[in-house]
Amino acid sequence: MSQKPFIISAEGVNKSFDGFQAIRDLNFYMDVGELRTVIGPNGAGKTTFLDLITGRTKPDEGKIEFLNTHDVTKMSEYEIYRLGIGRKFQTPTVYTDHSVFENLVLSLEGSRGVFRSLFARLNSTERDRLDEILKTINLGSHRDRKAGALAHGQKQWLEIGMLLAQNARLLLVDEPAAGMTDEETAKTGDLLLSLVGEKHSIIVIEHDMTFVRQISQGRKVTVLHQGHILCEGPVDEVQNDERVLEVYLGRKARAA
């Protein structure tokens, strides 16, 4: 177990907001190169879990380690980002007053220092890469438009593009399919699948079970309930699990 490092591991994590326990005794382990889907009912604590990994909120207890070496609970947001952890938020958050291209420039991997930023110029490799990404996310013709003027689905794509530009080791993707057409959803799935490997590990949070099936492909799925892991396993197994049926698909199962 200690041979291969975990891309991310959480142990004994607790977090409550004003007495409400959003995360309870959470233990979570994920291998390098894994694509893990996290599902769970509304308010299960999925987004809060990503907040804890990315430093947006600090846990009351427990530790969260990146590659078994960096305890992210003791780091600030930008330090965590610089480890190579990138995030797409549940509600698309792009720089609305910047152009689509500028959004990508801001996200492009590389120095984040103040003095370097004064004299930073895009070289031709970087420019080509950003143009490539623009093509991938289908926003080539919107290059110079303000990001705030994009449709909801396009903003989702832009934020995915920003993740690509960052070239993160660990991608945290919160409900990427929301606001997308079925076709776009499938395309998002393909994109994520094409990325996953030694270089990129991915956590996807999703409600849409068709999408979950598409991307998990027999991989491990984690079910979160009331801030705790209810069970883990391939999607078919999980969907037939007694406890999951009870709490998550409860009403549906009983109706059937």
């Binding site: 990315t54 947006r56 600030s76 947001e77 930008y78 980002y81 610089r82 995030r87 938020f89 958050t93 792009v94 720089y95 609305t96 007053d97 910047h98 500028e102 420039v105 801001l106 996200s107 984040r112 220092g113 103040v114 930023s117 004064l118 004299f119 930073a120 920003m162 960052q166």
Partner: peptide
């Protein structure tokens, strides 16, 4: 017009997001 200027305006519009793009907003 520099990249600094881009970050600067990003800080103005959405400081939290800037942190999640890896910039130490406080230094800027």
């Amino acid at each position: 017009t520099t990249k600094f200027g881009l970050v600067q305006r990003a800080v103005r519009d959405s400081e939290t997001r800037v942190l999640f793009s890896g910039y130490a907003a406080a230094n800027y």
